[in-house]
C-alpha cells in the first residue's frame, strides 16, 4: 500500500488523500485502515468544545504554537457544521490558524459534519486513526459544543477541554447541556471581559456539586487567547491530565470503553448503509410506505418485516 507508506513517512499530500478516501468509505481506504491500526495508540487526543465564538480556534492555535516550541508533532481536526439543506459547508477555522500552515510539524484538516447517519463521528474516527498512525504526538479535535454528535466526538478524546466565555448566561447553559460532566479542563476565555470572575466562581460551584467519581478535579483556567495570556498554564494542565490518566490506569479504561463504542458505531453505520441501499434497490419499499400511509398496515409490522427479510 503505497499511500500508507508515504503517509507514514510524513507526506502530507498522502495523509490528506487517505483521510478523503476514508471519509468517503472508498475501497482503497479500508485496506489502509486495517493495516495502520497496529501503529495507533501513541497520540494524546485532545477534544476542544464550546459555544460558537468562544475562541476555540484561537486557543488551539496558541496551544499548538507552544507545543511546537517543544518540537511535538501536532494535528488539528477542525469540525464545522454542514448545511442540512444543501449538504454544503463553510469551514472557517483555518482563518485563526494561518500561521501554522507552513509549519512542517503541523497538519490541519477541516471537516464538515455532513449531516445524518453519524457521518461526523465516522470521519473523525478515521482521521484520528490515520493521524495517530502517522506519529502525531497530539491530535486536537475542535467542535462546536451544541449538539449530541459534537458531545459524542469529544467523548472520544483522552482529554476534553470545555471553553466558555463571560456574557452568554453560561452558568445556566452549563447545567442544561450537561457539559460539566464531560470536561476534564475548563477554560474561561476572553477573561479580560466583565463577568469572567463570576463565571469562574459559578463554574467552580457547579463542579463542586458533581458526584465525586475520580481523583482528577477539573481545573478552571482563565485565558485571553488572542493575547496568549494563560496559555502556558493550559498546556501544563493538558500534560498533567495525561500523566494522571496514565498513572491512575484510567487511560486504559477510557480507551477500552472508547474502542467498544467505536466498534458498535461502525457496525450500526455499516448496517444503516446496507439497509438504506437494499431498501432503495427493491422497489417494494415505496409501495409498502403507501400501504402504511393508507392505514392498510402499520409502521411496526413493516419494520419487523424489513428487519426479518434483510437478516435472513
Amino acid at each position: 500500500m503505497e499511500l500508507l507508506k508515504e503517509a507514514r513517512n510524513g507526506n502530507k499530500r498522502a495523509i490528506a488523500r487517505l483521510i478523503t478516501l476514508a471519509e468517503s468509505e472508498a475501497e482503497e481506504a479500508s485496506h489502509a485502515l486495517q493495516q495502520l491500526y497496529a501503529y495507533t495508540g501513541g497520540a494524546h487526543i485532545v477534544g476542544i468544545t464550546g459555544p460558537p465564538g468562544s475562541g476555540k480556534s484561537t486557543l488551539t492555535d496558541k496551544i499548538v504554537k507552544k507545543l511546537r516550541k517543544e518540537d511535538k508533532k501536532v494535528a488539528i481536526l477542525a469540525v464545522d457544521p454542514t448545511s442540512p439543506f444543501t449538504g454544503g459547508a463553510i469551514l472557517g477555522d483555518r482563518v485563526r490558524m494561518s500561521d501554522l500552515n507552513l509549519d512542517e510539524g503541523v497538519y490541519i484538516r477541516s471537516l464538515g459534519t455532513r449531516g445524518k447517519l453519524g457521518g461526523l463521528s465516522k470521519a473523525v474516527h478515521y482521521a484520528t486513526k490515520i493521524l495517530d498512525a502517522c506519529d502525531y504526538d497530539y491530535i486536537f479535535i475542535e467542535t462546536v459544543g451544541v449538539g449530541q454528535s459534537e458531545v459524542d466526538i469529544v467523548k472520544t478524546a483522552d482529554t476534553t477541554i470545555v471553553v466558555m466565555v463571560p456574557g452568554l448566561g453560561d452558568d445556566i447553559q452549563a447545567i442544561k447541556a450537561g457539559i460539566l460532566e464531560i470536561g476534564d479542563l475548563f477554560i474561561v476565555n476572553k477573561s479580560d471581559r466583565d463577568g469572567a470572575n463570576r463565571l469562574s466562581i459559578e463554574l467552580q460551584m457547579m463542579l463542586d456539586l458533581n458526584a465525586v467519581k475520580s481523583e482528577w478535579t477539573p481545573p478552571i483556567n482563565m485565558t485571553v487567547a488572542s493575547k496568549s495570556e494563560g496559555v502556558d498554564e493550559v498546556v501544563e494542565k493538558i500534560k498533567n491530565h495525561f500523566v494522571y490518566l496514565q498513572e491512575s490506569g484510567e487511560l486504559t479504561v477510557r480507551r477500552r470503553q472508547r474502542l467498544e463504542t467505536e466498534i458498535i458505531d461502525l457496525v450500526i453505520q455499516k448496517l444503516t448503509t446496507y439497509m438504506t441501499k437494499k431498501m432503495s434497490k427493491e422497489g417494494s419499499y415505496e409501495e409498502e410506505l403507501n400501504r402504511v400511509f393508507n392505514k392498510e398496515t402499520d409502521p411496526y409490522t413493516l419494520v419487523n418485516k424489513m428487519l426479518n427479510e434483510s437478516l435472513k
Binding site: 490528506a16 444543501t86 449538504g87 454544503g88 482563518v95 485563526r96 490541519i108 464538515g112
Partner: peptide
C-alpha cells in the same frame, strides 16, 4: 454560493502568501 451548491468550502482568511495557500490546499485535499 459554492456552499449553497453543496460543496465544502474552506476559507483561508485575508493576506495569505502563495506558500500558505498551497500548503492549506494540500492538507485539506
Amino acid at each position: 454560493a459554492l456552499r449553497d451548491a453543496g460543496m465544502e468550502v474552506i476559507y483561508t482568511g485575508l493576506r495569505q502568501t502563495p506558500e500558505q495557500i498551497a500548503a492549506a490546499a494540500v492538507q485539506e485535499d
